[in-house]
Design a protein around this nucleic acid. Sequence first.
DNA 1: ATACAATGTAGAGTAAACTCTATGTCAAGA
DNA 2: TCTTGACATAGAGTTTACTCTACATTGTAT
Lengths: 123, 123
Amino acid sequence: MEYSIGEFSRLTNLGIHTLRYYEHENLITPKRNSSNRRCYSDKDLAWIEFIKRLKDTGMPIKEIQRYAELRTKGDITLNERMEMLTVHRESLNEQIKVLQEHMAKLDDKIDFYRQEIERTLKG
Amino acid sequence: MEYSIGEFSRLTNLGIHTLRYYEHENLITPKRNSSNRRCYSDKDLAWIEFIKRLKDTGMPIKEIQRYAELRTKGDITLNERMEMLTVHRESLNEQIKVLQEHMAKLDDKIDFYRQEIERTLKG
DNA sequence: ATACAATGTAGAGTAAACTCTATGTCAAGA
DNA sequence: TCTTGACATAGAGTTTACTCTACATTGTAT
C-alpha cells in the first residue's frame, strides 16, 4: 500500500507539518509520484512507528537522524546501529529505575498528606 | 543553616540563573538579608528537591507553579495539593508502564539485529 | 471549464525551560 | 583606597521540536 501525506498523517497520528519536518531533518524519505507528491509505503509506516518509539523514550531528533543515516547505508551499519540501540536500552532502563524511585517518594508524600489532613480534621 | 545563591546552586545542582528563574516564576521565594541578597534555608532545600522530583517526572513549570501557590496558602489547601499529587501519581504510573512496553519492543529489535548480524557474517 | 481541496516549498512563528548579557551594588582583602 | 568577586535586576538570546503562514500547483468533482 501507498499513502498520501494526508492518509499517512492520519495513520501515524503525526501532523502533516510534522511529517514534512521529519523529512526535512532526513528522518524519513518517502518516494514521490509523477506530480512530486509524497508516497509513503508500509515500510515507511513501520519505520515511523520506530521513530516514535525512540522519541517517546527520550532520544533526541539529532540522534534519530544519525540512526536514520546509518539505516540508509544498509547492512554494513548493522553493528553500529545495534550498538546505538544497546546504549539507548541502558538509558531507558535507567529512566525506568529513576521514575520508580520518584514514584516511591511521591507515595511517601501522599501518605504524609493523608496523615496531615486527618490531623487537621481532628485538631 | 542559610545559604547564599552560590552555595545553594552547588547544593542543588541548579545553575544560579535557573534559581533566579524559578524565583521569577514564583516556584520558590527565599528570604533576603539586609543587602537584598537571597538567603536560602534548609526548608528551601527540601522544597527545591521536591520541585526537581516533580519536574523529573514530567510536571510542567506551570503546574508546579500552581502547587507552589497552594503551598503558600497553608493547610487549607492540603486536600487540593494531595489531589494534584494523586493525579500526578497516576500519570507517573502510566509513564512507567509505557516505557516498559517500549523496552520490550526495543529488546525485540535488538534481538533481531543480533540475528541479522549473525546471518550476514555467515552468508 | 471551473471551483476547491489536498499538496508542494520556503521560511516565519511558537512554547517551554532555561541561559546569558549588560549594567549596577556591595562587602572584604591587598 | 582600590580592586575583586559574588550578587542584584531587566531583558535578550538559545535550544528543541514542532506548528503555522503565504503562496504556487495539481487532481477531482460539478
